[in-house]
Design a protein around this nucleic acid. Structure first.
Lengths: 128, 128
DNA sequence: ACATTATTCAACCGCCCGGTTGACCGTCCA
DNA sequence: TGGACGGTCAACCGGGCGGTTGAATAATGT
């Protein structure tokens, strides 16, 4: 399911076509949340879907979007398909962005607190 | 020279809402190209629009999307509005992404040489 | 005063995106 | 063998996005 190079708008070697898909994939909060979940551990699709209120089919679609962007990889083993982070997508985005300046290396504790805060929002949102 | 704080777009790095706009803004190749143009120099809207085939109104919309995401700032002086990069948006995205691993900060000169070498290899292969 | 330039606004259009539901398919197990 | 489980597929729907055109606004030039 790859996009042919033939429909590249302008021959711009510094603009890999994949960035469209990567940034579009990252633009959705559900998908970002999925990525941060996969940061903890590889997960089966059902387990990824569990904390969300939306249908399993919706999550399945989100996962294929992430896979299409090279942000995760899915491996089917038996009847469950495992999802794991794929650094390639994130790296491609990171490389492009670094053309706009290196930003101070992040304090990882800050980031952890940020993720925790987001997690709290999620659990709050999830109570029925 | 500087834009008053009053019309600073909300791009609080700790706000997941902002990431939606930022990544969505970056997901469009036209907008990424605009950003790389602004990397060279600040520009008026018309000048930004010049190299594109689409209408000026379309570019104007793209610019307001970028401004809304905190990726650029627009300052109207006289009858022309100047556009300049705003590091806040890019930094917010970068902060979030670095939670998924620091990718070696790229020395842009190194990177350029790498690209050049790759290109040479490629043409060599084709010429044989 | 008038025309020109610079930019935005408003309405519209086609298409893609995120979500749903229901059927379907493959795999494990009692 | 027959379910129950895990996951995808297909069709559909509402809304938002990227683009257009044409009018409107505001500042400048003559």
């Amino acid at each position: 399911m790859s996009i042919p190079d033939s429909d590249r708008p302008s021959s711009d070697p510094a603009e890999p076509r994949g960035l469209d898909q990567i940034f579009a994939a990252l633009a959705d909060p559900t998908r970002r949340r999925v990525l941060s979940m996969l940061l903890e551990d590889d997960m089966a699709v059902s387990d990824v879907a569990a904390p969300f209120q939306m249908s399993l089919a919706a999550i399945s679609k989100h996962l294929s979007v992430l896979a299409g962007a090279g942000l995760i990889r899915q491996e089917r083993r038996g009847r469950i398909t495992w999802c794991k982070l794929d650094p390639d997508g994130m790296r491609a985005a990171s490389v492009w962005m670094q053309g706009f300046g290196q930003f101070d290396p992040v304090d990882l504790d800050d980031f952890e607190r940020f993720l925790e805060a987001e997690l709290n929002d999620w659990t709050q949102e999830r109570e029925e």
